[in-house]
Design a protein around this nucleic acid. Structure first.
Lengths: 207, 207
DNA sequence: GCGGCTGCTATACGACTTTATAATAAAGGC
DNA sequence: GCCTTTATTATAAAGTCGTATAGCAGCCGC
């Protein structure tokens, strides 16, 4: 009376982990927190539950892995845009701003997943560690952009680190608010607002 | 073999709903999303599970109610601080900033709950409606503060509504980031950063 | 073409979840 | 002091959750 065993493809651990993580992202995108479930994710990936245990031990590990994957994607998107820009601090700063509001990132289903991740950070050490890593990279980049711009254009920023934290927080806040209420402003508005913020830097508001 | 029925106090619907909501907040504070559970909340409130069904029908309703309660608290705290300030636009703006970083609001356990709420908004119509109401009030206030300040001090802000949205998003972003990583900056830093942002306004960065 | 490694399936178990329903007792009106 | 109202308890039913375990089967080396 047993179910006949299903046929399957054997995959490398790395590939499979990625597949599972991507399935997890789709589940969270669709169902929010409710999507964080071994069964749902396994079904989405077209495998059985045991496979998640096998590769990750526990679900939190999988979720943290998915987070890191997504964070790396976002980071590399922004980094690439900056690298492609003209090699002036102003152009690089602007490229960062534009990339942050590009459809790849500034997308409701992407950000919806991101918000769920945030809510997990406080209660999962793995997630917390991953978030701190990611945020550190993020803020460091912002700090460089700000410092370089200040030096190139000859204005002063008293504490570039703090300014960078604010800049990063502003992005997060705009992402969050737009995701929760997309009608309130457009991506172009977001870009304009961030440029204004930089203009404030130039005019010595942070000196 | 039945359990002897426990004695209890009868309370007005309003009081009981508030008690349940407060218990829910404590549970979420303690356990994040896992705290959103009829059983946990009922235990925390010292009542049986059925009572939640009785008063709210389903859990989401209770959570939304708790959200509104907490949102109203935060709003009234900030509103009170503004009302107590000197009646100049600059003083009122500053009071708003300081209140936003006061220990009542800028508190990890408070913000931790808040983040969980955010993550629920996208998947719960009730929560979404409540969030939009709350956010609307919030942004409106910011817009008034900005417009009044601009008029009083004679600088120009091209789009006060958008500026207000950014200001609000900046608060959210700073709350979020500090909550996830309290070591990165202090409340005083947050206040200084927001003042700098206002200084940017004054210097015409948003004209 | 034949073993062996291990990725993978299938299944079971126990704890926990929400929601529904009937019974009970507390409190207010009279 | 009784009677009604209804807030509240107790309990059940049905489902989902995560984790563990046993063994099959795809693939690699030979």
């Amino acid at each position: 009376m047993q179910k006949p065993r299903a046929s399957y493809r054997r995959e490398s651990a790395e590939d499979r982990k990625r597949q599972l993580a991507e399935a997890a992202l789709r589940c969270i995108q669709r169902n929010g927190h409710a999507g964080v479930s071994v069964r749902q994710i396994a079904a989405e990936a077209g495998v059985t539950q045991g496979l998640i245990t096998h590769h990750f031990g526990e679900v939190n590990e999988l979720v943290a892995y998915a987070f890191e994957l997504m964070a790396a994607d976002i980071q590399s998107g922004i980094a690439a845009a900056i690298a492609e820009a003209d090699d002036t601090p102003a152009a690089r700063m602007d490229a960062c701003i534009e990339a942050s509001f590009s459809p790849d990132i500034f997308d409701q289903s992407t950000l919806g997943v991101w918000i769920v991740f945030w809510s997990l950070v406080l209660h999962s050490p793995k997630m917390s560690a991953a978030q701190q890593r990611d945020n550190g990279i993020y803020v460091n980049r912002m700090e460089s952009l700000i410092s370089d711009l200040a030096e190139a254009e000859g204005f002063r920023v008293a504490n570039p680190r703090l300014a960078a934290i604010q800049f990063a927080a502003m992005f997060d806040g705009l992402w969050l608010n737009w995701c929760l209420n997309p009608a309130s402003f457009s991506p172009e508005d977001g870009i304009a607002l961030c440029r204004n913020w930089v203009e404030g830097l130039r005019r010595g508001a942070y000196a």
